[in-house]
Design a protein around this nucleic acid. Structure first.
Lengths: 262, 262
DNA sequence: GGTATCGATATGTCTATACATATTCGCGGT
DNA sequence: ACCGCGAATATGTATAGACATATCGATACC
């Protein structure tokens, strides 16, 4: 029971803490398939004995695994390895300006059109709101080293985000401004493919009929629509990359490369 | 300090546990912007007093928020609201057979080609391996109610997944078989757009030049490549939907609607 | 001015204990 | 055979106390 020997003493630099050892040990057994989905993990009592520690410590390890959705805990019944329902991936969609800058390229931004108006039927449909209210409608283009990177078409609900009325979207892209000024609780991304029509092709400097990747993003705060945006990327030269690591890695100090790669 | 009054007594059905109240309270302040990114959350000591509980209880609430990446805790310095670095979303890509079945439609599957061979240069490039080894190459098509849904082109590394040599991919799609038989630790999805060339258009029963959504997925187990797959969907009729809820919702008993919607 | 050191401090981990609560299981009655 | 009920049990929450550890800041030294 080597794990139990050094309790209370200072740890060597390479041995993680006890609950982390337990968590990693269980995680390893799950990921290698030694404990397949549906398998019942030993009771906390047995794990206490196995690792020579208190129940709280075992419980902490299991709680984190449960929060990460690797296991499921049921009172009286026990703890079970979760059945993977689907492949999932964390899709990180960075602010476009930050993304291009991180790639070491010169970010360019052009405001094409910005208008404040009462929401018409199309606007209300896009925002998913019933009541008429004021909105800001923005069209703009992002570029990297002078090459068109994406075009953006955005609506902001001014009733939900009144500060947007005074923001200067000529100098700062609306996505960047929103990310830094408006907290949100929920977002939905719909990713699809289209072929470029004439205006889109001109704006992106690609051929009419070329494929484009489209992200439609809708953002809410507490059930309230904040903004709806459509981003159109040249489709063959840009990829949206989502990487999923087995849920419990230590967070690196500095992380996250640009996610949309050329 | 009403939160402190009923400690130890049985709770009413509607009041959650103490640490959850604390967690939700802090989460609310963060999401409403009352505590903006970078703001220092009161010390555990102060929170103990505010909520009238022990330090362990406060710590448990904060630990969960830290695991959900809403806050960052630093020894000696304190606990801070995290700066949102980018919009992120959990992209769930279900098994195609399960997905179509969940939509209440009839799943159809056709194996187009299945071959076992020594990995050639193209295969090694796709799998990202240096050594030559045996692979299985599979082409197949998924359909819903008889309408083509996606075409799949897959390589499986037989050295990493020897069981794949005896699997029957004529009756079961390789994605389904792998999901149920092979545990994985890491996956990467690259999403892009293409226009359909002639063979693709014929296979999907769409026009040549129509947009298609492409998912290239690479799956590893402990640094070891397992499989690489390219899925091509008709791009205008299918969307990949990713929804991100602010991290702290209770998990529903039954969840997750189909993610690729028509 | 620059640098090494050290104490203060906030979080991190762990223990032992207690009681709450959900759920299963088996028993006993109908 | 069925149902209701209570006992058993595994997890869930909470406590007080202890010590570990990283790091911020100030002090002392060069």
């Amino acid at each position: 029971m080597s794990l139990a020997t050094d309790r209370g003493k200072p740890q060597a630099a390479d041995t993680p803490t006890l609950y982390k050892q337990i968590r990693l040990d269980i995680e390893r057994r799950i990921l290698t398939g030694e404990w397949p989905p549906g398998h019942r993990i030993p009771f906390e009592h047995q794990l206490m004995t196995r690792y020579g520690c208190s129940r709280m410590t075992v419980s902490k390890a299991l709680s984190e695994l449960a929060q990460a959705d690797l296991i499921e805990r049921r009172r009286r019944a026990g703890t079970f390895v979760r059945r993977p329902k689907f492949l999932s991936a964390v899709l990180t969609i960075p602010d476009i300006r930050a993304e291009i800058t991180a790639l070491g390229r010169v970010y360019g931004y052009q405001l094409i059109k910005s208008a404040r108006r009462a929401a018409n039927a199309v606007d209300r449909e896009r925002l998913g709101v019933r009541k008429t209210g004021k909105v800001v409608a923005i069209s703009c283009r992002h570029s990297a080293d002078g090459v068109p990177f994406a075009i953006e078409d955005r609506l902001i609900d001014l009733d939900a985000v009144p500060e947007a009325a005074t923001a200067d979207f000529a100098s700062e892209p609306p996505g960047t401004w929103l990310l830094h000024h408006v907290p949100w609780t929920e977002a939905e991304h719909a990713i699809s493919a289209i072929v470029a029509d004439d205006p889109t092709a001109r704006a992106l400097d690609i051929a009419t009929g070329a494929p484009c990747l489209v992200i439609d993003r809708h953002t809410w705060r507490s059930e309230r629509t904040l903004t709806a945006v459509r981003l159109v990327y040249p489709g063959e030269s840009h990829k949206l990359v989502a990487r999923f690591k087995g849920s419990l890695e230590e967070r690196p100090r500095q992380s996250s490369p640009a996610q949309i790669m050329q």
